[in-house]
């Protein structure tokens, strides 16, 4: 059989989602953002919500998310994405409203908005990329940076006495009455990618059904910031990040009912 006989629509097993635009992403090779972007686009497409989806992009590496996923977007001031999403969802309850935020945006400058939006039970989905570093501004310390981890602003490694402890924010959010679904996933293996996709789907459906806040934390790599190859970054994440940020569901109100 010739190659051309195989390349046919009916034989297709995988395709790039239509909502992912035909442009070069500015993300570094090996970065988790690209995978999560694709999952977001795929889920919106599969749920048939392209006409109803409104994303809120953060300040941080994902600031240009609106250039890649072809839906309506708002670009928030640093940390304010969940406040913006709150207003959008309240004003237009029939829309799919989600934020896409990094650790600095969500868990440092935006902590107040993050906690209060979750506590009010806003029916928004929050996709929270935790890579333990500030990628866009050049590798400074994040609230989630691990003890001992070196960054541009803790060049000798994070020290609790100088820099405080790494913040594990999702378990905190899981305690709040307003959250419906809080989970922690990653995208370093095909199996994990599939799990993350299922989590995003559940979060988006919760938003559409007005069920309260869903938080999908994706423990991610920043090979540039970590100064590692993509492959080594994945391994470093497995070896170091998962201990502080273990994967799995932290809260799923619907699962308890079942």
């Amino acid at each position: 059989m010739e190659n051309n006989d195989i390349i046919k629509v009916e034989n297709r097993v995988y395709k790039k989602p239509e909502l992912l635009k035909e442009v070069h992403m500015h993300y570094c090779p090996g970065c988790s953002h690209g995978v999560v972007h694709k999952l977001v686009a795929e889920v919106i497409e599969e749920l048939g919500l392209a006409e109803k989806a409104i994303g809120v992009s953060p300040v941080g590496c994902a600031v240009f998310a609106y250039n890649y996923i072809d839906i309506d977007w708002l670009e928030a001031a640093h940390g304010r994405a969940t406040a913006m999403a709150t207003a959008v969802k309240r004003l237009m309850p029939d829309k799919l409203v989600f934020t896409y935020q990094g650790d600095g945006d969500f868990a440092a400058i935006g902590t107040c908005e993050s906690i209060h939006s979750c506590n009010r039970g806003e029916s928004i989905a929050i996709i929270f990329i935790n890579n333990a570093i500030y990628g866009m501004t050049g590798g400074q310390m994040a609230p989630t940076t691990l003890l001992g981890q070196k960054t541009a602003t803790c060049p000798y490694g994070r020290r609790a006495d100088l820099n405080g402890y790494p913040l594990s924010i999702t378990p905190l959010l899981a305690q709040l009455d307003g959250t419906r679904y809080v989970t922690r996933q990653s995208v370093h293996t095909a199996a994990n990618v599939r799990k993350t996709k299922a989590a995003i789907k559940k979060a988006f459906m919760n938003s559409m059904e007005g069920k309260g806040t869903s938080v999908v934390e994706v423990v991610s790599t920043c090979n540039t910031g970590w100064k590692l190859s993509p492959e080594k970054a994945n391994q470093w994440m497995v070896d170091n990040m998962f201990e502080k940020y273990p994967l799995g569901d932290l809260k799923d109100v619907d699962a308890k009912k079942e």
Binding site: A50, S57, D70, D72, W73, V88, M92, K95
Partner: peptide, 17 residues
């Protein structure tokens, strides 16, 4: 206005960047 791509109109993006 950002209110969803009804009828798959081109996406609206509000940004100050």
């Amino acid at each position: 206005a950002v209110n969803g791509r009804k009828g798959m109109r081109p996406a609206n993006i509000i940004t100050s960047l």
